[in-house]
Computed example of a mutant assay.
Amino acid sequence: MPEYSHFQKLADGLPEPLMLVSQEGYVETVNRAAAAHLGQSADALAYRPLTELIANPPDQIHDYLRRWARTRNPLPATLRFKETAKELRGWRCQGFRFGGVAERGWARVVIR
């Protein structure tokens, strides 16, 4: 994931879980803390749809992503991550746009 190496270097140094997600809803990369919380490697999480990792209804997930993609100011949400097949864990999160908007009009979103 060389295009995310700068983000990865900064994010891996932080103790809080961080995910870089496309506005379309795919994980682009996560830091070590997020991988540890989810019990998977960063490589295993990359390019997976959020709907596989989060138990919230897909429409709600995509609504959060659309709202977060429009601002650099963190907006709150509660996401229920599927940490194991039987366990759900609610995370109070904030999301915001990372960088500029891509050519197709899509943005990347950081979830923390």
Rank of each mutant, 00 (worst) to 15 (best):
G25C: 06
R104G: 15
A33Q: 01
L75P: 00
W68S: 05
K82M: 13
G95D: 03
H62V: 00
N31E: 00
L18D: 00
S41L: 10
T29H: 06
W91E: 12
R66D: 02
P58I: 13
T71C: 06
A34K: 03
A36Q: 13
R92V: 07
G39D: 00
T84W: 03
L88H: 07
E24M: 11
G25H: 05
E3T: 06
K9M: 10
I54N: 00
Y4Q: 04
A55V: 10
V101M: 07
L79H: 12
L10P: 00
D43K: 11
T84S: 15
P49K: 10
F7K: 01
M1I: 09
K82L: 14
L79G: 02
S22K: 06
I54W: 06
E24Q: 11
T71K: 14
G99M: 13
A102D: 13
D63L: 14
P2L: 14
N56S: 11
E3R: 09
L65N: 06
E103S: 10
A34I: 07
G95R: 08
H62L: 07
R108I: 05
S5Y: 04
A33R: 00
A69N: 11
R72E: 13
Y47T: 10
F98G: 04
H37W: 12
A102E: 11
G99R: 12
I111M: 04
V30E: 00
R112Y: 05
A69G: 15
L88C: 01
L14R: 01
Y64F: 15
R48P: 04
R67F: 04
L53I: 10
I61A: 03
Q23F: 11
L75R: 08
